[in-house]
Nucleic acid binder design. Structure first.
Length: 765
RNA sequence: GCCGAAGUGGCGGAAUUGGUAGACGCGCUGGACUCAAAAUCCAGUGGGGCUCACACCUCGUGCCGGUUCGAGUCCGGCCUUCGGUACCA
């Protein structure tokens, strides 16, 4: 008899729904478990295998937790704003709202067929004004605290299409992926959130959360703390000062030139007239380079002198000022002191342009006359450094800083790589920035009572050189709330990472309209106990969310310091070696498999494929093995219909009273419970399922057992199946003669320790 | 380039974290059932060697080296692949 998965799954999904089994009682908090998955990005495509791989196994873990007694909250929602829907609109003319809503409708149906424990009352979508209103509110709070500010920042600009391009739309050659034109950098005034206000706390906080070490390490490196000093170089024949940041103040005597970022504002002031033309040409060239190209240590550096000189604060020597691609305005002060003798990049640059190399740190085992064949970047005795000669460079670092500070030529300084968060997007499909630009009053934030600023439906998406919202006059033209004169709204929208920075609060009460979230509920349910999502979010989303959480705490809205107590990454399921994405056209549709095998089989196959955190390349080879396992399971239970009505349940057996087959089955059942629990608790689903397969292989001798042991084994088998194949487990247990759903109340069996001891033990010598 | 990972049979992977490498599954081979096929069930299955056979020997966890009585696991150096690199999310 074939397992009728389609009817069975429909039947139990309806039963769970009718009985509201997965509605969370938010008042029971002593055993609460907030299990969160990264929400769905619906403007690209429907659910794909990556989503299933994230959600299915995580639901199995949560189901296990529910069975052992946790009060689980498992929400799902839609990260509905974003670029792909807008690009789709430009291509096809289908409005982003329409395509997104259609996608959400389709995805919701797919999600329901997965059979996860979602609490549908908690469903939310970020493109709903009742959601993005609170993005705007959040913006206003940040603005009020001085943590939202405007400054110039470059964007990728396609001069042909007259539009801003996402990094993804720029090819490796620096051309527009639509029209092939060379992309340039263009400065626009844009909004930033001042995440750097929280840098040190974001760094320290990593020690308090249970996240994968690699993720914490990536965040640490992303924040990029470095301890060093700033040194002020006076510009020769000018009042201007060039301030550099260095981690190696001990090499200050080795400076032979100074480099400014080509876009540094001082370049205009300092370039001498005869260099102007070359400098301008060079600056145009640098605009075509990506940051990655500019900082690559393998690519040959470029640069030119600007005809000006700086004075080294320690020895008053005159050194030339250059501009070069590898100096970035966004890191440190945008100015670099170059020490070719002790920095590899500077060495290479000095070689190329015949700039002097000066040795000021002695590599142990060499002397002052040994020629430097490459930069020596280690520590050693200081030489050619006046009063600091002979000092160990580590001590010299401190002495030089003291020297600079005493003369007011510099100061101790900690620098971070982390930059403020640019949130302005010159796009339509996002949260409007709640700001009005008044010719009289300047920037006027929208009053909180006037939120939300609704995103209008009628706009022109086709690129016109300006943000799409400018094409809707009704939206753009407003009276200034302060003075009443004619004013304009901000035409930009927010980065969608703003939406995803606080949604875990909103799930608790997605529809309240008088607050961003219910503080009491949030205190009970946040931090999230387990957050599972892709490792590709390690540095951006997961850092932004931590920042916003800390900001909300400082507003007094929550007590906790961190949003996600535990974090795990499922691996990436690739297709032909590459991450699945609509733009690559290599998305695998899960429906094909769920229709053929059912959702339990598909879920189990994804879990059985390999370690959860590794993912792997997609292949459907092997799904038939899981299907066979399910068929054999169903067939096995059908041989024992209504057994529970004929036999009394027994909790434990005395091993000595059992025959040989009974003994090994009794052992296997108990051993499997132990093994399965240990594996699923740690998200090791592949071995958890392997243990169930071992169990059913053992159960082939079940006919030689007493009725009591048969019932004992099958009951336990059904419950072990429940987390990983919930529909099948319900059905099998019903076949045995049980009337109630497994998931109605906590239900788990412990194992008999005495059964685990084997008769003989092999010891390797 | 930089930051973070991964590499084990024909394939996906397992190995209680330094102690019998290859659990479980796919595939394949042989057998049973069948007029036949499919499905199902049973047996075998890392390479090489030696055996009628049981057994036994030997090589083997990306590459090179090291530590150790003992290394898939630890250390150093590479190679390849993947994720991120601040406007895909």
């Amino acid at each position: 008899m074939m397992y009728p998965f389609s009817e069975v799954e429909e039947k139990w999904q309806k039963f769970w729904d009718d009985n509201q089994i997965y509605k969370t009682d938010f008042n029971k908090i002593d055993n609460k478990l907030y299990s969160l998955v990264m929400f769905i990005y619906p403007s690209g495509s429907k659910l794909h295998i990556g989503h299933w791989y994230n959600y299915g196994p995580n639901d199995s873990w949560a189901r296990y937790k529910k069975l052992i007694g946790y009060n689980v909250f498992e929400p799902i929602g839609y990260d509905a704003f974003g670029l792909p829907a807008e690009n789709y609109a430009i291509k096809t003319g289908v409005h982003p709202y329409d395509s997104t809503m259609q996608n959400i409708k389709d995805i919701r149906e797919q999600l329901k067929r997965m059979g996860c424990m979602y609490d549908w009352d908690a469903e939310l979508m970020t493109c709903d004004p009742e959601y993005y209103k609170w993005n705007q509110w959040l913006f206003l709070q940040l603005y009020k605290k001085g943590l939202a500010y405007r400054k110039n920042a470059p964007v990728n600009w396609c001069p042909n299409d007259q539009t801003v391009l996402a990094n993804e739309q720029v090819t490796a050659n620096g051309t527009c992926d639509r029209c092939g034109a060379v992309v340039v950098q263009k400065n626009l005034t844009q909004w930033f959130f001042k995440i750097t206000e929280y840098t040190e706390e974001l760094l320290q906080g990593l020690d308090t959360i249970n996240w994968p070490e690699k993720t914490k390490l990536m965040q640490r490196n992303w924040i990029g703390k470095s301890v060093g000093a700033e040194a002020d170089f006076k510009v020769f024949g000018s009042d201007e000062v060039i301030t550099v940041f260095t981690t190696r103040p001990d090499t200050l005597y080795g400076v032979t030139y100074v480099v400014l970022a080509p876009e540094h504002p001082l370049v205009d002031k300092l370039t001498s007239p005869e260099y102007k033309n070359d400098v301008n040409t060079y600056r145009e060239f640098v605009k075509t380079l990506s940051e990655l190209e500019r900082t690559s240590t393998i690519k040959e550096k470029t640069g030119i002198p600007i005809g000006a000189y700086a004075i080294n604060p320690v020895d008053s020597k005159k050194v030339p000022i250059w501009i070069a691609d590898y100096a970035l305005l966004t890191y440190g002060t945008g100015c670099v002191m170059a020490v070719p003798g002790h920095d590899e990049r500077d060495f290479e640059f000095a070689r190329k342009f015949a700039l002097p190399v000066k040795k000021v740190i002695l590599e142990p085992g060499t002397d002052a006359d040994t020629e430097l064949l490459k930069a020596y970047t280690g520590t050693g005795k200081m030489i050619s450094s006046d009063e600091f000669n002979g000092l160990d460079s580590e001590i010299g670092k401190q002495r030089i800083i003291e020297y600079l500070e005493k003369r007011n030529f510099g100061r101790r300084k900690i620098n971070y790589r982390l930059r403020d968060w640019l949130i302005s997007r010159q796009r339509y499909w996002g949260t409007p920035i709640p700001v009005i630009h008044c010719p009289e009053c300047g920037i006027v934030p929208v009053d909180e009572k006037d939120l939300p600023v609704n995103l209008p439906y009628e706009v022109e998406f086709n690129p016109s050189g300006k943000s799409p919202l400018t094409t809707n006059a009704d939206f753009m033209n407003v009276k200034c709330p302060k003075c009443g004169s004619d004013a304009k709204r901000d035409a930009d929208t927010m980065d969608t990472f703003v939406d995803s920075s606080w949604y875990y609060f909103r799930y608790l009460n997605p529809h309240i309209n008088d607050a961003i979230f219910d503080m009491k509920k949030a205190e009970d349910w946040v931090p999230v106990d387990m957050y599972v999502g892709g490792a590709e979010h390690a540095t951006m989303h997961l850092l932004y969310a931590r920042f916003i959480h800390k900001f909300l705490r400082d507003l007094g809205l929550t007590q906790s310091d961190e949003p996600f107590r535990n974090l795990l990454h499922q691996g990436t399921i690739t297709n032909k070696g590459a991450k699945m994405s609509k733009s690559k056209g290599n998305v695998v549709n899960p429906d094909e498999f769920t229709q053929k095998y059912g959702s339990d089989v598909f879920r189990m196959y994804l879990m059985f494929m390999g370690p959860y955190d590794l993912g792997g390349d997609w292949s459907d080879h092997g799904i038939s093995g899981v299907d066979r396992f399910v068929q054999r399971t169903y067939e096995l239970f059908n041989r024992f219909k209504n057994l529970s009505e004929k036999v009394k349940t027994k909790e434990k057996f005395e091993i000595e009273t059992l025959n040989q087959d009974e003994k090994s089955i009794y052992r296997k059942v108990n051993h499997t419970i132990k093994k399965f629990e240990a594996e699923i608790n740690n998200f090791r689903f592949n071995t958890a399922i392997a243990s169930l397969m071992e169990l059913i292989n053992e159960l082939k001798n079940i006919n030689n057992c007493s009725k009591e042991l048969q019932l004992f084994s099958l009951e336990r088998f059904a419950i072990l199946l429940a987390p990983v194949a919930p529909h099948l487990a319900e059905e099998c247990r019903e076949i045995l003669g049980n009337k109630e759903s497994i998931f109605m109340h906590p239900l788990w069996y412990s194992y008999d320790e005495a059964a685990l001891v084997a008769d003989t033990v092999n010891i390797a010598v």
